[in-house]
Structures are given as structure tokens and as C-alpha cells.
Design a binder for these strands. Structure first.
Length: 425
RNA sequence: GUGGCCGUAGCUCAGUCGGUAGAGCACAGGAUUGUGAUUCCUGUGGUCGCGGGUUCGAUCCCCGUCGGCCACCCCA
């Protein structure tokens, strides 16, 4: 009886060798950008106490209500992190990184877990690059984050395919007033709302603004507008942000109906969206969450951040065909040999790797026909084949043959080989 | 949680009007050229997603289930 083969969990993907070069390329571009702005990396555990997410993300959100991977261990309720911000705040608090409003610009990268039905650009284990800043209340840091992402799109060559949507949610007080007015307006028109929005009237009225239903959107045209409820400070903050973005030439669309799903956002919210990815068009989203640190037991600390979905960015890069060909290249040199030279060949490879730390050299293993070895050399994608045999070694030489274009093989003395490779790779 | 489409070798697919399966590519080995993208030969590999039903007999019909893709909800 053949046992059923164990397969990966639904929505949990293996990232195979054919894909990892693209991931590494993207990660390298992101890191270069973050480094350029002086952001520091922080790494948090993947598992936290369940209550951390309940208190931060919001008890009534879908993430907490039905999407968390939660389990019991040692009489504690633990959860695989569904997002990174809560963990980051917890870590900063725990290690006094943001005590007394000490400033921090931090980033992290890694898997997040949400129990949802997978579809294009959405998986149960997915990967985010998160950026969080603390201790800075002014709009210039909001602007910096947006400018930084903007620069990343330029680096990745997708800038003309993404649009920045911008909104402000105001202070929690202004938001509460607006929410009350909105509910008041919608309650009497409840029967005109789509089914989902009727439900949201109780759970999360602001999200009705986001509804995809055309009839609901039409109804909203006469609804109260947040700009009539916004507090003075938030309005000022928002206009400062816009002035900064204007000054550096980052274009944006004001979207008064942009509402983020997580409870902790206030004032600035933004999303970079694309229409290249089907229904999951948001590749990067974030906003200000000045109240969260206090909510988690710390002192009031201003904070802004955002998260990018790595899978979505990669889908984007592939759809846009902007992945440089050299990304897939993993080898510079493939060493082949004929005759009884296994020992000197191994010594040569070792010596070259010692002398050229950046050299990517792979040896053909197990001997075999020289013809096959050369085929393997070509398939390997290496720039050069290094040919070792008894005759050449007797003369203190090795053969170097270019593989990318059909070129003549040259013989180099062992003494010159290292320098030659250093110059020609 | 809801809905639509789909499920035959690693990949792309064919096929049996119901009698337990094939091609190309890929992979491994070999022949030849004896330092590579040609040609030729051979081989590995599927109880036709899984379970049940109808039938003498099902991969092909029916039901269920699992998985994949996409969409809703929600979100990165």
C-alpha cells in the first residue's frame, strides 16, 4: 500500500531554485535602497503571544477574527505573526529602543501567516518587507518613507506602472465624529447598500467607503465627507506632506475613500497600487500609527511605517519583464578535466577560490566523457570553461574557453590565471 | 467562509463512443564528431489526484473528497 505523499500545505509555497535568484535580486535592491536612507534591520520571532495581535491589529478585524494561526503551548495562546508591526513595536518597547521618544528607522523582512483562501498575489504564508519609524511626529518622515519607496520603484523599473494613493484619516476623535455621521447617513439607506456593506455598517463602517459595489459607490457620492470633519492638526500635517511630495516630484492621487484595514492607523495612509496584478493590486501600503505604542503599554510615541508584499512585487517584476538576465546567472567558471588529473584539478579549484573570494566556480564531478562535460559546462551558464588535462599541466598551463559566445580557447599559465580571471569576470 | 473553471509521465498535451495508456520536450546512459548548442539508439518515469457507486470490467459515466487557478470577502 503506497502511502499518500505528504504535500505542502495549501497556500504555503516552496520557492524553488528557479525562483530564488529573482527573490535575491529583489531583496538586494530593497536593501540597497534602505541602506541608502540609513535604515537598520531588526529581526523578530515568527511567533508571539496571541494577545499582542489582538491588542494591536484590532479585535474586530478579519485578521484577528478568522485568519490567525493560533495554538496553545504551555498554557499560553501563541500565534504565527499575521503582520510585522505589532512584533516590531513589542521588540522596541521590550529593549528600550524607543524610550523617551528615541528615534528609530527600522526594517525587517520575512514570512507572515494568514489563514485565507489563496489566489493570485495572496498566500497563507507570504513575505513582507516592513519598515517602521518611531519618535518622529512631523510630516517630513511620512514623506521620506514615500520617497524611499518611490526610489525603489525606479530601481526596479516599475515606476510607471504603480500609482500612489494618499489619504488622511485624521485624529481618532475626528475619525470617530466622521464615522458617526457616516453611519447616521447610511443607516437610513441600509436597504440600498450591497450585502457586504450592510454587514460592515456594524463591524467597520469606514470600509464601506472602499466598497467595490458600483451602487454603493454611487450612494456614497452624497455621503458626508471626511474633509468636513478633519481636525486642524491633521489637516496641517497632510498639507505639509503633500507640499514635500510636490517639491520632490512624487506624484500622487488623493483618494478620500482610501481606508486601511488595521485599527491602528491615523492621519497619513497610503497605498501603491497597480492594475497589473488582477484583484490584488496593492504592492505596498502603510500609514501613521501614533497611538499604537501607547496602546501596547508604552509611552505615547509617534510612528509611521509601511509594508510591501514580496510575492506581489515579484509577480509585478515578472509581468513587466524587468528582471535583468544576469540575475539568473550563478556561475562564472565551470571546470572540466580529462585524464587522470582529479587531484590537481581539485587543488586548482581550491586555490582559485581562495585567491578570488567573489569567484563562482563549479567543478565537474565524477569525470565522464569530455564531450558530456563540455555540455554540462554550457548548460551551467558559466562564462568560461576551465580545461585541465595532463598535457597542459605538464606545461604549467590551463585552457580557458569562453562559453557565452563561441570563441577560441586560449591557454594561460597557472601563474597568470588568477589575474586573468579577476580582469575578465 | 462563498462562487466559477480545471486535475492523464518533471513540463506541454493526446487518447480510449467503458476492456487498466501514448507523443514531444526534459532527465539518465550510449554511438558519432573524440573541447560544447547537430544527428542516431536505449532507458528511467504514470495503479490516468484520491475514495466510493454503476458495470463482467472505469482513466473514460455518477457521487463525494482533496488539490490547483481565478474571483468575492479581506489584505501586502
Amino acid at each position: 500500500m503506497a502511502q499518500d505523499k505528504i504535500k505542502a500545505l495549501i497556500g504555503m509555497n516552496d520557492i524553488l531554485p528557479s525562483q530564488t535568484p529573482v527573490w535575491r535580486f529583489l531583496e538586494a535592491q530593497v536593501k540597497a535602497t534602505l541602506d541608502g536612507f540609513g535604515y537598520q534591520e531588526i529581526r523578530m520571532p515568527l511567533v508571539e503571544q496571541t494577545s499582542l495581535f489582538k491588542r494591536s491589529v484590532g479585535e474586530a478585524t478579519d485578521i484577528v477574527e478568522k485568519e490567525m494561526y493560533t495554538f496553545e503551548r504551555s498554557e499560553r495562546s501563541l500565534t504565527l505573526r499575521p503582520e510585522g508591526t505589532a512584533s516590531c513595536v513589542r521588540a522596541c518597547e521590550e529593549h528600550q529602543l524607543i524610550a523617551n521618544n528615541k528615534r528609530q528607522r527600522l526594517w525587517y523582512m520575512g514570512p507572515m501567516f494568514r489563514y485565507e483562501r489563496p489566489q493570485k498575489g495572496r498566500y497563507r504564508q507570504f513575505h513582507q518587507i516592513g519598515v517602521e519609524t518611531f519618535g518622529m511626529a512631523s510630516a517630513d518622515i511620512d514623506a521620506e518613507l514615500i520617497i524611499m519607496t518611490h526610489q525603489l520603484w525606479q530601481r526596479l523599473n516599475i515606476r510607471d506602472k504603480v500609482v500612489l494613493q494618499l489619504n488622511t484619516l485624521g485624529s481618532s476623535e475626528a475619525r470617530a465624529n466622521f464615522k458617526a455621521a457616516l453611519v447616521e447617513f447610511l443607516v437610513v439607506r441600509k436597504d440600498q447598500l450591497d450585502e457586504d456593506s450592510q454587514r460592515r455598517l456594524d463591524t467597520n463602517p469606514l470600509r464601506i467607503l472602499d466598497s467595490k459595489s458600483p451602487s454603493t459607490q454611487a450612494l456614497l457620492n452624497d455621503a458626508p465627507e471626511f474633509m468636513d470633519y478633519i481636525d486642524e492638526e491633521s489637516a496641517q500635517h497632510f498639507s505639509e506632506l503633500r507640499a514635500l511630495l510636490d517639491a520632490v516630484g512624487v506624484e500622487y492621487e488623493i483618494n478620500p475613500r482610501l481606508v486601511r484595514g488595521l485599527d491602528y492607523y491615523g492621519k497619513t495612509v497610503f497605498e501603491w497600487v497597480t492594475n497589473e496584478l488582477g484583484a490584488q493590486g496593492t504592492i505596498c501600503a502603510g500609514g501613521r500609527y501614533d497611538g499604537l505604542v501607547e496602546q501596547l503599554g508604552g509611552k505615547p510615541t509617534p510612528a509611521v511605517g509601511f509594508a510591501m508584499g514580496i510575492e506581489r512585487l515579484i509577480l509585478m517584476l515578472e509581468a513587466m519583464d524587468v528582471i535583468p538576465a544576469q540575475v539568473a546567472k550563478t556561475l562564472d567558471v565551470y571546470l572540466v578535466s580529462e585524464g587522470d588529473v582529479a587531484v590537481p584539478a581539485m587543488k586548482l579549484a581550491t586555490q582559485l577560490r581562495d585567491q578570488l573570494p567573489k569567484l563562482r566556480l563549479q567543478m565537474h564531478m565524477g569525470g565522464g566523457k569530455f564531450n558530456k562535460q563540455m555540455k554540462k559546462a554550457v548548460e551551467s551558464g558559466a562564462s568560461f570553461a576551465l580545461v585541465v588535462n595532463e598535457e597542459k599541466l605538464a606545461n604549467g598551463q590551463v585552457g580557458v574557453k569562453p562559453l557565452l559566445e563561441r570563441g577560441e580557447q586560449i591557454n594561460l599559465s597557472l601563474d597568470n590565471l588568477t589575474d586573468w580571471l579577476a580582469q575578465n569576470l
